[in-house]
């Protein structure tokens, strides 16, 4: 069984949660607790000057002493903007260098802009950032990002927030088989079975936000996701049976009371 080590720290939980779209910060906190995750991703945005600066402070609810805070570059469409956001995040988090790099191509599908992502990853790695990179499910791109020196490669299951699950299992398998860094499915999970499938494919973890935050009961869904990730991971390690064309009875064919 492969340990999940990111930036030198071993994680027992293979579930990473986003912190957006919750009703309020108390619900965010409760969902995170229910999921037993150890790492959460956050966005970097301007402070609302003029409003009560003591209220609505996410990191008062999600303590950086307890959780690994993974600042992301969501909303960035160029390498330049993503790098700038990472620099700000590092200053904000007292010099921490772990970041989630995400450079988008267009607002409709939020697909990664692979060219800008690679450009940003090269510069960030050269500046000693530990980069967890959101990318497409293209195995060639995933390998390239590993070669650049990214800490983790995080292919999408499907479009961010779409809940369509793992669209291309074959690509995810191909990425996992060729990887020497952790592979974490980021985006597209809709329900627990999607998270379970990602882990059954051999991924090292799953990152999700909308599937939990927009569920009717986010706290319960967070718990379901926790179980799904554990189940999928255990099933992968246990080794699934071969798929056969014909049936194979589980009960012995001999000794039937109705038999001879």
């Amino acid at each position: 069984m492969r340990k999940l080590i990111i930036d030198g720290k071993e994680y027992k939980s293979r579930l990473i949660l986003g912190t957006g779209k919750y009703k309020d910060l108390k619900e965010t906190q409760a969902a995170i607790k229910s999921s037993s995750c150890e790492m959460v991703t956050v966005a970097i945005r301007r402070v609302n000057i003029g409003q009560d600066n003591e209220s609505d402070n996410l990191l008062d609810f999600i303590s950086p002493e307890k959780y690994t805070i993974l600042p992301n570059t969501a909303g960035c469409y160029t390498a330049k903007d993503a790098i700038r956001t990472c620099e700000i995040a590092s200053e904000l988090l007292e010099g921490k260098k772990l970041v989630k790099l995400e450079v988008l191509s267009q607002s409709k599908n939020l697909f990664p802009n692979v060219l800008e992502t690679i450009k940003a990853a090269e510069i960030l790695v050269s500046k000693d950032f530990k980069v967890m990179v959101y990318t497409t499910d293209d195995p060639t791109v995933a390998k390239e990002l590993e070669k650049i020196g990214c800490e983790c490669v995080m292919p999408l299951g499907s479009a961010i927030g779409s809940g369509r699950g793992i669209i291309n299992k074959f690509n995810i398998c191909e990425i996992v088989e060729n990887a020497n860094v952790p592979i974490i499915v980021d985006a597209g999970v809709g329900t627990a079975s999607d998270a379970c499938i990602a882990m059954e494919l051999g991924c090292d973890g799953v990152l999700m936000n909308t599937a939990i935050a927009n569920a009717n009961n986010p706290i319960l869904m967070a718990s379901a996701m926790k179980d799904a990730v554990i189940s999928g991971y255990n099933a992968f390690n246990a080794g699934r049976i071969q798929i056969k064309d014909s049936a194979s009875a589980s009960s012995p064919s001999s000794g039937l009371v109705t038999g001879e």
């Binding site: 986003g18 956050v42 966005a43 402070v47 992301n72 969501a74 904000l92 988090l93 927030g161 909308t210």
Partner: peptide, 10 residues
Amino acid sequence: IEIVTAIGGG
């Protein structure tokens, strides 16, 4: 001048 912080996001 930009003053920024961490907020909820995925």
